[in-house]
Amino acid sequence: MGFFLETLFGGLMAGMLYSLVALGFVLIYKASGVFNFAQGAMVLFAALAMARFAEWFPKWFGFESLLLANLLAFIAAMAMMVVLAWAIERLCLSKLVNQEGITLLMATLGIAYFLDGFGQTLFGSDIYSINVGMPKDPAFILEGMFEGGVMVSKEDLVAAVIAALLVIVLALFFQKTKTGRALRAVADDHQAAQSIGIPLNTIWVIVWSVAGFAALIAGIIWGSKLGVQFTLSLVALKALPVVILGGLTSVPGAIIGGLIIGVGEKLSEIYIGPMLGGGIEIWFAYVLALGFLLVRPQGLFGEKIIDRV
């Protein structure tokens, strides 16, 4: 039982990280109907910026404080994501208004490859580390119930709390603020939104910036756990089944979807894996997503396609 719980927690934590990446997909899809293939590349780019700035700033300005370095690096990385959002809107999206979804998807695919390369040109292509002072030692809980307790990583716990906070902030932003309402309006019908004076360009810059913010948070957490390297951008591929499962238009869906995938992956690997010779973790998520596409194409929490006849 203790082992089961350990696996379960491990899965939940891994799932939380998938959710963070999936969030970026959902945000952009909701507001602009673009399936942003570049989300993974944005995570890598943000993490690279964060890691390198934290390394460079103390050298450039001659100070020691780790906290200050991280803080400044975070601000600088966020600023880069905003500039990036603005550039993507200016140079790419605004030229493609009212094009087919597939055209936009191809454009984001292009952006993904560009970002992968450009990030490494700017920041180098080695493996870097992000040290934001996440606790690295494991904690043992429920020691009264099981012998030896259940081991969980404190780092994962902190990550989960941050992810949860991020989701709450985003949900409030979408539901309660004027800009959030405008974002949802644009998501529903961007021509109508334009007709009542919502400027699409501004909205797109905002939403790509918010997605950039989500990418930065995801990048920091993944980066501090596994190191910052090229493979980080492939994390996005794990987020695809998450958004299919949770629904492309639902922020809570991205979270729950991530958790289900994370847990499902780990449990199936441990309990079904031995029967099939292992390696389930790699493809489990995709098979689950496929199954979901057959029975509930809008995902668990996706907006039902409302059609009046």
């Binding site: 309402r181 309006a185 529903d188 019908d189 939104a193 009542i196 004076g197």
Partner: peptide, 18 residues
């Protein structure tokens, strides 16, 4: 062209964006 997933009141408030 109403915003399908927004409530009527949210639709109206969205109209006050400017």
């Amino acid at each position: 062209h109403c915003f399908a997933h927004l409530t009527i009141e949210e639709n109206l408030l969205a109209g006050a964006y400017t």
